[in-house]
């Protein structure tokens, strides 16, 4: 039995070291990453965010954002003052022009990288923010202008946040919290807050996206209900307050209440494409368009696989099988 025990111990050691995210190797890499420069940049980002919101940044807030102690934070902020990134006026922290420039660079890096992850990779939505949080410290301004050019100089990240330009100009999403809106008006989501992770994960799970049209049905202290993309959604007010909306443009004022998902079309039924969900991005969206799935295209569900999924659809004379996750991304109307 002795060799068997040795084997188990070896295998155990291998797992302890190599396990993704909690293994020793992964931990060591994370510690390596938390250098002082990264902490300074994260602090600048936090202070900039406070200034944009009109709040007063303080030491506790910085310590909380960086997950470090107060003393450590004080030392860090002191160093940042000495290197002329921060200045204190009337007991309040302010960004110097250099500090603001760095903060905007990091924000630009973060949002461009999120846009890249959304358009050019297969990572799930809930992973974008964490990955961009790490990558933002590694990109130079030259990297960013190359990346921006490749992505077609996007103005907003996938959450609806404006991407600062290389010159440091930044627009506003101009939205107001959903919870402050009147009932029964036509609204449009302009921004989804991606922090904290758990709240964002719920917004993603509801299938919400910037640009989605909606109409409030109920706005109470217990729950917020609204109608969007042919479906009723219900959220806790604390979660709904992370959605920013603006008044929908007049020409698109109607909310599609007669649309449904392609996955809801039964075998033998016919429907007309209304739109591809904006949640469908990058290569997958282009593939759909290549296949001829465009507003106005007639689609007939032909047959379903004996294992229940995928389903084959007749699209412009060709028979194409799509999986359920994909037919959930296509909105259709009655033929």
């Amino acid at each position: 039995m002795a060799p068997f025990v040795t084997t188990l111990i070896l295998l155990g050691l291998l797992l302890v070291v190599g396990w993704p995210e909690v293994g020793l190797w992964a931990r060591w890499q994370r510690v390596q990453h938390l250098t002082e420069r990264v902490m300074q940049e994260d602090a600048l980002k936090y202070i900039h965010k406070c200034e944009m919101k009109g709040e007063t940044p303080n030491l506790e807030g910085v310590a909380g954002t960086l997950h470090i102690g107060r003393n450590e934070t004080a030392v860090l902020l002191d160093k940042m003052q000495q290197s002329d990134l921060l200045q204190t006026k009337d007991g309040q922290m302010h960004l110097t022009p250099d500090g603001r420039k760095t903060a905007l660079h990091i924000i630009r890096a973060h949002r461009l990288w999120e846009h890249h992850l959304a358009q050019e990779t297969g990572y799930a939505e809930t992973e974008w923010h964490g990955k961009a949080d790490r990558r933002e410290h590694e990109l130079s301004p030259e990297d960013l202008s190359d990346l921006a050019a490749r992505l077609g100089n996007p103005t907003h990240d996938p959450h609806g946040d404006p991407i600062p330009t290389a010159e440091g100009e930044v627009g506003q999403h101009g939205g107001r919290p959903l919870t402050e809106q009147p009932l029964d008006t036509s609204l449009q989501i302009v921004h989804l807050e991606d922090e904290p992770d758990t709240v964002y994960a719920q917004l993603v799970a509801e299938g919400l996206y910037p640009g989605m049209r909606l109409r409030l049905i109920e706005n109470g202290t217990q729950r917020v209900r609204f109608w969007a993309d042919g479906d009723e959604h219900m959220l806790a007010p604390i979660i709904a307050s992370n959605i920013s909306v603006s008044t929908a443009p007049a020409e698109a004022a109607h909310v599609h209440e007669d649309v449904r998902l392609l996955s809801g079309v039964g075998v033998g039924e016919t429907a007309v494409v209304s739109q591809i969900s904006p949640l469908c991005r990058g290569a997958e969206r282009r593939r759909f368009m290549d296949l001829g799935i465009l507003p106005g295209t007639v689609i007939k569900a032909e047959m379903r696989s004996p294992s229940g999924d995928p389903t084959a659809y007749r699209i412009r004379g060709a028979v194409i099988a799509l999986r359920q996750e994909q037919s959930n991304l296509i909105y259709v109307k009655q033929a």
Binding site: T121, R287, L291, A312, I320, A321, L322
Partner: peptide, 12 residues
């Protein structure tokens, strides 16, 4: 995980 995935299956 990060590679692009676009499923479609044509039945010619």
């Amino acid at each position: 995980k990060g590679e692009v995935s676009t499923f479609s299956l044509e039945l010619p």
